[in-house]
């Protein structure tokens, strides 16, 4: 059997579009997921039940249903209730919301890893909750939180392939498209596997550089007051 390079080369436009879309989806879903994660984490660690319980429910639901089912529910079931979202919008929302639950748990683990004395000292100085979380607790989280958060982000990049099931023309969808036209499954899927791998490697490289910069330089953790 020969490797049909031409089948891929001839349809490079589709591949490039798909790759860009996968990058776009990741570039939106990961930061959005981190924001949701911070917000839900703050609710989750609250002393007030009214805040904590919805956060627990959200985290448990998101972690215990498959992303694909979430996508199907939003894309195929919500229209019955009059909510009609495009595949891409559905993808952004679901991936962010899904990732947010995992990020929230990672951040909570980080907050709990900060010694209790840090909270005591901050409170004893009279610092307000929001202020000391932002200036005292969260800056200490980076080293605890960075590696597991990177893993979640990486998972989200790869899970974005599920969006092909709801008509989003991202990389996996592009592969199906090319395969449908040329019937070269070996070539197409090998190619997109390599592209996913490449995206992941570049992403990991960037994050590990960022991480070592944070760890090596304590000054970078200092944020000028006001």
């Amino acid at each position: 059997m020969t490797f049909d390079y031409l089948a891929i080369w001839d349809h490079r436009d589709i591949l490039i579009d798909g790759t860009l879309k996968t990058l776009l989806i990741s570039a939106i879903a990961i930061p959005a997921g981190v924001c949701i994660g911070i917000f839900v984490c703050l609710l989750r660690i609250s002393n007030r039940r009214l805040l904590r319980w919805p956060a627990i429910a959200y985290i448990e639901i998101m972690r215990n249903i498959p992303l694909l089912i979430l996508l199907f529910m939003v894309f195929y079931a919500l229209p019955f209730y009059g909510i009609r979202l495009s595949g891409l919008t559905t993808g952004f929302i679901c991936l962010s919301v899904y990732g947010g639950a995992y990020f929230a748990e990672v951040f909570r683990g980080g907050v709990e890893a900060v010694p209790k004395g840090q909270f005591d000292a901050a409170k004893a100085l009279g610092l307000k909750y929001g202020f000391y979380m932002r200036r005292v607790i969260f800056p200490q989280l980076y080293s605890y939180v960075f590696p597991p958060a990177t893993n979640i982000a990486l998972t989200l990049i790869k899970e974005s392939s599920l969006l092909s099931m709801i008509t989003v023309a991202e990389l996996t969808y592009a592969a199906h498209d090319i395969n449908g036209r040329t019937f070269t499954p070996v070539e197409t899927f090998a190619t997109i596997a390599i592209i996913y791998w490449g995206i992941s490697i570049v992403f990991l490289n960037l994050t590990s550089r960022l991480q070592s910069r944070i760890e090596m330089d304590p000054v970078s953790q200092q944020i000028a007051i006001r």
Binding site: G117, A124, G126, P139, Q140
Partner: peptide, 16 residues
């Protein structure tokens, strides 16, 4: 809290 200062066994300085 703003009028009462406190020191702890483990110092609890902010390491960052």
């Amino acid at each position: 809290r703003s009028e009462v200062g406190m020191c702890f066994q483990q110092f609890n300085l902010f390491p960052h």
